[in-house]
Design a protein around this nucleic acid. Sequence first.
DNA 1: GTTATATTTGACAATATTGTCTAAACATAC
DNA 2: GTATGTTTAGACAATATTGTCAAATATAAC
Lengths: 94, 94
Amino acid sequence: MKNTAFGAYLKALREEKKIPQRKVAHAIDVDTSTLSKMELGERQITIGMIKPWAEALSVDFKEVQIKYISGKIIHDFDGQPFLKEALQSVIKEL
Amino acid sequence: MKNTAFGAYLKALREEKKIPQRKVAHAIDVDTSTLSKMELGERQITIGMIKPWAEALSVDFKEVQIKYISGKIIHDFDGQPFLKEALQSVIKEL
DNA sequence: GTTATATTTGACAATATTGTCTAAACATAC
DNA sequence: GTATGTTTAGACAATATTGTCAAATATAAC
């Protein structure tokens, strides 16, 4: 299933700062075509890309990681009746 | 990346109750070979399988869903520095 | 032991996903 | 207009993942 929101968020950040895809693409070691697709939700963004990506954009890694993880959880599990309990149980074991 | 724990948990439940794979396999509409692989972590178990699976085992759906979701989150994000904050932010928006 | 049932394994075709390449579309400056 | 740089789209091979089948292995009952 396709996820659009997070890529769009990163794209908006990049455009605010007028950074070309070329720079971010280099930081995460893909070409601009792949990066474009990631921003458009046509390719997955993996957790390992978040740090270099945030650095390339000069934005707070913490904020981006939180957005990435929470967005993925919502995307994967939204509407599941016991999601809240599951999240609480993870927090407890951390 | 491969996840073993959740399949093993379902397998243990099934064996406790002496239910053959055949019955669970029928409930989730795969053959026993696929089911065996799911129990062994060689095939993904998707969220949509949890309810019929729990029913086939006559176990509490709530408990199984919580185990599934929390297991997947741990598997995907364990060790990420801001996981806790991300989970809290999801809980807040629910 | 034999037989019947249950489970796992390996091979396989089908499908999905990946990153790159080329070229097209778009934008900006001159 | 042209030239330059940026972004996107389509096609593609490579890779990964899927569920099934048939055969092998394990388990249980007798």
